[in-house]
């Protein structure tokens, strides 16, 4: 069976019209699953839960499986109210990105999937979640293919069915804070941030004083400075029984990225000529159990 492709939630803060335009295009792309929702900052309110649900219906109409993603770091009662609205959507599966969301879907008896920030590091954890309605889990970004292989082997031995998704392309979400690093760069307090992160649709590059790409600041989240790229690993993922391959949305060049992964999953590995993307080095270290920023592949 061919692996599915998914578009992860947009991690950046794009203006509402850009979001709608992006998904109008994505509706035509060869991806099976689309994750929708604001997963980083509660102050990003261009799209309300009701808007995401409307969009979800449109995309479902185009034949996509749609999942509503929850905010990764929950801090307040207001955040919990938003979570409840997502849980109560009545139509779409929820991606639980922390234990608050997990608790809500479990108490409501709803099925769910888990995102990359849910710490699933071993089969015992999966067994707990499977008992409670887990439909699919995403490998945490820092785990390697060897750990995934061990997980898959154990699940097989124990006759457990837990489809796995792998974050395979894009800047890796690495940390979440109550502080905003984009506002900090602009010298603004978080409560009066003036939504400066919207000026950076691919985040702000944080470099060492030797100009090495280290991280990427995106509001309250911190991402990798290099772009994770596991396209060459798709045959290996296929052998490991990976169910879904996640691509993380970027502002430019995404149609071509999806097209390449679509070819690659069908066994036709595209040449590695450059794409029109935000400039950043590639990395694949995590997959090989090395520092995440490492890049193994040389032509």
């Amino acid at each position: 069976m061919t692996m599915k492709l998914s578009l992860g939630p947009i991690l950046w803060y794009w203006p509402r019209q850009d979001v709608l335009n992006f998904y109008a295009e994505a509706a035509e792309w060869p991806v099976e699953t689309i994750y929708l929702g604001e997963v980083v900052c509660s102050r990003r309110r261009d799209m309300k839960v009701a808007d995401w649900v409307d969009l979800a219906r449109d995309l479902r109409g185009c034949g996509k499986e749609v999942v509503l993603s929850s905010q990764t770091l929950i801090e307040s009662e207001a955040d919990l109210r938003t979570l409840r609205r997502i849980r109560d959507n009545g139509e779409f599966l929820v991606e639980a990105n922390d234990q608050s969301a997990l608790n809500m879907v479990i108490e409501a008896g709803l099925p769910f999937v888990t995102g990359p920030s849910m710490n699933v590091y071993n089969p015992a954890t999966l067994r707990v979640l499977l008992r409670r309605g887990l439909q699919r889990w995403c490998l945490p970004v820092e785990l390697s293919r060897d750990t995934l292989a061990d997980m898959q082997a154990t699940l097989y031995e124990q006759s457990l069915h837990a489809p796995v998704e792998v974050f395979a392309w894009g800047f890796l979400p690495l940390a979440w804070s109550s502080r905003c690093f984009t506002a900090r760069y602009y010298g603004k307090p978080k409560d009066r941030c003036e939504f400066v992160c919207q000026q950076h649709p691919d985040g702000l590059a944080l470099k060492s004083r030797e100009h090495q790409d280290v991280f990427r600041l995106n509001g309250t989240s911190t991402l990798s400075g290099a772009r994770y790229d596991l396209m060459r690993e798709l045959p290996d993922m296929q052998r490991l029984g990976v169910d879904t391959v996640r691509l993380s949305p970027e502002h430019e060049g995404m149609a071509e990225v999806v097209a390449r992964f679509d070819r690659a999953r069908q066994g036709d590995m595209p040449e590695r000529h450059p794409l029109h993307l935000a400039e950043a080095p590639p990395c694949d270290g995590y997959w090989y159990g090395r520092p995440g920023m490492d890049w193994s592949w040389t032509p």
């Binding site: 920030s117 590091y121 945490p140 690495l174 979440w176 520092p291 995440g292």
Partner: peptide, 21 residues
């Protein structure tokens, strides 16, 4: 720690060790 603990992977991104692993 100013990042939410338990879900900070910055260290394993630069080295091969993190608080979680």
């Amino acid at each position: 720690c100013i990042m939410a603990e338990g879900r900070c992977y910055l260290s394993s991104y630069l080295t091969d060790e993190s608080p979680n692993t």
